[in-house]
Write a protein that binds this DNA or RNA. Structure first.
Lengths: 372, 372
DNA sequence: ATTAGCACTCTCTCGTCAAGAGTGCTAAAG
DNA sequence: CTTTAGCACTCTTGACGAGAGAGTGCTAAT
């Protein structure tokens, strides 16, 4: 019976997927013949569909409804059937322009990347802030008086990472005082990592190259705390956007998908939880960070059951050996993979370019034209 | 027939609202009698319910279903029937402790306030960053070299507001160079507002007290751009959180609310749009900024039709004559108003305390115990 | 003024039924 | 051996209706 995946079956599989992605309705044999002007009869197509089903690429919800791709079907499509597309140049231009307008602000890049991914793919987007390959390394500190008993500490780390923190002063201090303390600490702890700083502090007093005042000791504590929370946060933080875009997919509109409507809402809640907590994605991120190119995870392929109905398209971005993050889109398995993939590829290369510029490394990515 | 709002009717109205808020089901006369051990018969209650309906405080979905409060009913409850409660001390303590742990970071306060509001009220929360009453006033600038052709500008404004921005250098510059330029500009433009800076720059060259290099001129442009975008953003930005909490309300669970299920999803989409875009809230924020105490907007009372099914509980927070923002919760009109109001009141006073501390003003708010 | 009793209304839930969609199978044709 | 026409079969969907249940509104008695 099953004579393997003949050319024609592949072509039909491709059509089924295209059609299903477009319409979100199970596709019937006759629809295919009519819409794509196939030169065979519906019966022939039915035979092929049955074969594809036996091979595991399609399913039946129930006896008499059209075919729907399985995860394996999508997988085959992505691997073998899909032509590699790039985002239209006009869209690339528009996106580049938007990034140009927020040049200089990393936070804005992240936010913009999320918004653009969501808008162009009509799905939710995920962006993790770029994380340094190496642990955070202190560079210098500035103290700026806000008023008598309060100052603002600006903590600068290697790689242009800056954190600010207000500190309460035990007593009034002059600007000059603050500047001196900041300078002393900047000198004292320059280029140290968190563990280095802790080590330095742990040394017995007589081995300390510098006698710290109580005030300065307090500052160091604040610095340590800031570095800790930063490392914790950057490890986990996932920005997401485009919930609304994803929710406009028919999967979430009970009137369109002939189904319980109960389940549509349940699905929605699950989607929310995934996006908010990043649960189900936790294991994916490091995996993507360790691999090149665009990664496509279809349904529950790689992670827990809760992701069964969703696909994720992710790519790493960043600068080799320096800093890297992950960005991508998440949506129902019925996803326009070519578009998602080309968008993710483009945005990740764009973000890489921007970061490379920041890090003064010439870009290595083919699609990366200079930013304006 | 309608002998006005007698004592007993008020009591019954109160019970109806309590019951409906708790169960989300239309409340029947017999239920009231049984559950609250009223010493009258269901028939009597029915008469009173009918009167309350005629007075506009209750409605009927259809002939034979229990009563449901109208907006006017909630309004009367909030104004006259509700006892003014405060958040339990244990909860206050927990919340204070959480704020203590992120002391020194304004961004974190905002985020935490949103999370706490959402969690304790089981609704979505809204927080706008505190905005200075006066326009942004420049204080000083630091330039920190990142590498040869890139530096990080740290812009400090009055009130402890800090922005960072990377700048590309036209040519390599020494640290000393950068420091001098930053110092010159800090001196030159200190204490100026955006319009002041623009005015200063507009003066003819011979009146300029200081001849700026091209590089410095570029920095000023960057500063102006940063100040502009900051003012724009802070005018509009609304942080929201707690979507998941709100979505766990029965209104959004089609199986619980006997209703189209279609509408539950539509309602949900609307909620999302309100939260994301702040549409329907736009007019509310300035209104709340201009008034004291907790403001309750029930249903479409004050704004457009899209808010008809939602209530908002908002309060201003901040420091008199210096800085102010708005925070609160949004949820279905069937809301536990006493709890929402007391939570919003507490969080706003807490945030006010924190800001007052930052601004070195002694706190004026009664509930505001010292932070730890 | 309160309340018991009861009719009335409206929703909700099944079950049935007919229509429709699409498949799977069989047998004939190329 | 492949393709196809024809047809029975399955399953969903929507409509209709009846019966049960919930709660009210009214009336008349207390």
């Amino acid at each position: 019976m099953s004579a393997g995946l003949t050319e024609r079956r592949q072509a039909i599989l491709k059509l089924v997927i295209q059609e299903f992605v477009e319409t979100a309705c199970p596709v019937a044999s006759e629809t295919l013949v009519r819409k794509y002007r196939l030169n065979v009869s519906p019966a022939t197509v039915r035979n092929e569909l049955a074969a594809l089903e036996e091979l595991g690429y399609l399913t039946h919800l129930h006896t008499s409804a059209g075919r729907v791709p399985t995860d394996a079907g999508y997988r085959f499509f992505v691997e073998n059937l899909m032509e590699r597309t790039t985002l239209p140049l006009a869209e690339q231009r528009t996106i580049r322009h938007q990034f140009y307008q927020v040049r200089g602000e990393l936070d804005q890049w992240i936010q913009l990347a999320g918004a653009v991914l969501a808008r162009t793919t009509q799905n939710a987007s995920l962006v993790t802030p770029p994380r340094a390959a190496e642990p955070l390394r202190f560079r210098s500190m500035e103290l700026i008086a806000i008023h008598d008993t309060m100052a603002l500490a600006v903590l600068v780390f290697h790689g242009g990472i800056v954190k600010q923190q207000t500190v309460t002063l035990d007593a009034a201090r002059s600007s000059e005082d603050l500047r001196r303390s900041a300078a002393r600490l900047s000198d004292y702890l320059a280029d140290q990592t968190l563990s280095g700083i802790e080590e330095t502090l742990a040394r017995p007093a007589e081995q300390q190259p510098l006698a710290l005042t109580d005030f300065e000791r307090g500052l160091v504590e604040m610095l340590v705390r800031a570095m800790q929370t930063f490392e914790e946060q950057s490890r986990e933080q996932i920005h997401s956007d485009g919930l609304i875009e994803m929710l406009s997919q028919p999967e979430f509109i009970p009137s369109l998908v002939r189904e319980d409507a109960e389940r549509a809402v349940e699905r929605l809640r699950r989607a929310l939880e995934i996006l908010k907590s990043g649960r189900g994605l936790g294991t994916l991120i490091p995996q993507v960070l360790a691999s090149d190119g665009v990664q496509v995870i279809i349904g529950g392929e790689n992670s827990a059951d809760e992701m069964r109905e969703y696909s994720v398209v992710l790519a790493r971005y960043g600068v080799e050996n320096a800093i890297a993050g992950v960005l991508g889109v998440i949506g129902p398995t019925r996803m326009a993979y070519p578009r998602s993939i080309s968008t993710v590829r483009y945005i990740s290369s764009l973000m890489s370019d921007l970061l490379a510029e920041l890090y003064n490394v010439e870009s290595r990515i083919p699609e990366g034209e200079a930013l304006e």
